[in-house]
Design a protein around this nucleic acid. Sequence first.
DNA 1: CAAACTGAACCTTAAATTAAGCTTAAAACA
DNA 2: TGTTTTAAGCTTAATTTAAGGTTCAGTTTG
Lengths: 240, 240
Amino acid sequence: MWILLVEDEKQLASSLKRGLEEEGHVVEVVHDGEEAELQGLVNDYDMVVLDWRLPNRDGKQILEHWRAEDRTFPVLMLTALGDLDHKVAGLDAGADDYMGKPFSFEELLARVRALGRRSSEMQNNDPVSVGPIELDLRKHWVKVCGIKRSLRPKEFILLELLLNEPETVFSKTQIAERVWGSAYYVSDNTIEATISTLRQKLAESFEECEEEFLEDNSKVIETIRGAGYRLNSNLTQTNE
Amino acid sequence: MWILLVEDEKQLASSLKRGLEEEGHVVEVVHDGEEAELQGLVNDYDMVVLDWRLPNRDGKQILEHWRAEDRTFPVLMLTALGDLDHKVAGLDAGADDYMGKPFSFEELLARVRALGRRSSEMQNNDPVSVGPIELDLRKHWVKVCGIKRSLRPKEFILLELLLNEPETVFSKTQIAERVWGSAYYVSDNTIEATISTLRQKLAESFEECEEEFLEDNSKVIETIRGAGYRLNSNLTQTNE
DNA sequence: CAAACTGAACCTTAAATTAAGCTTAAAACA
DNA sequence: TGTTTTAAGCTTAATTTAAGGTTCAGTTTG
């Protein structure tokens, strides 16, 4: 997720930033109220973590302004412990959750996760299908020509990624970010190995189809040398 | 259902909590008015049981605030006996039902059930059945091939969750939120242990069936590695 | 001009490593 | 007390690594 972190204590801010980044988020830090307000108006963050006491503007003003401008990202506010009136005011102003300082980092992460989940559950998890391949995320199966295939977790997510945007070529970096959550630790070879096994499974499945969709069933996933991978474009063209 | 119980007498609160949990609800308890107010703003409970006399805020203030913020969950208020003015004020403020203390626990349960039924967004309490498993939330029993089985509360709610959407895979996080009410405190291992005992009980029960439904009765609940758990899909396919 | 060469990108497989999940008993809770 | 949670050792599956093999595009050489 893309997170804006608004916190004037620089020490705290930077340790939170690092922690959130380790969880795979992209974090922008702002130490100042006015700056925060502007950033929030200009960017579509997935979430904002907002300290309530800030130089120049207080959290409430900022949040009210954002909500008045229809900025809908979830906001997690940080308040001093026992500052109950502020909490209530914050929730009224449109905050989605709150935490009293001091808090454990684990707790912050848990809340960020929960908020993120809440907003991502709004997105569609509907079944996807391209040509003879169908994938249902909620039920967690893949069918080729109506026959179920079992895939391992990484293979599954990777296939889902390719199916969701069938024409698009995904670079190794993009794949690492979206399947592994981060490009740091993932070697090229890891991705290649995963592509390889996924390809084999898809090829086996395509063999069992009555109809023939491709000349070469080992090319359900195409390699674009130097660029990345994509679903075989014949699957999207021939079908409807 | 996911119920918030606001009651400052800790003794009473904990016995109500236990009773409601035995009925298969997920219950969160708060002893303090301000904290209650916040929790109600932040979470989408299915129902709130709200004592009218509380430290820090009184029930009426809280409820009015919630309603002003469009929190629509049904609220059952608890008032001192004979406190008629309060009752009227409470209903005006948006309470859906009231009870005078002291009350019998049975009566409380009845009203909670009634309120739950009344609220349209409630999931239906109708008996669920999948294959040879039948579960009645209201009567709180489970039968396998017609033979009753006793389950512990957590096991029961978990099974209910899986039965209600038999094809769907539930992640540990989803299970934590819907069986324990929150993913914060629940460790993976807790869920695994609960699954394990539930599995064993179901397996024993399946052994006693005349008909054979599965090759391996310890697989009534399937593990989808890296994704979560679901009811064995053979139960849903062969049936009907 | 075409055959051979070269280096980079990519593929494949099996072994090694790591992670996910299971189970039981004991501890903690209510 | 009965239920829930934690802890520890275990089992099994998924993932990554590693090593050698291909393919491709561009370049050199016969």
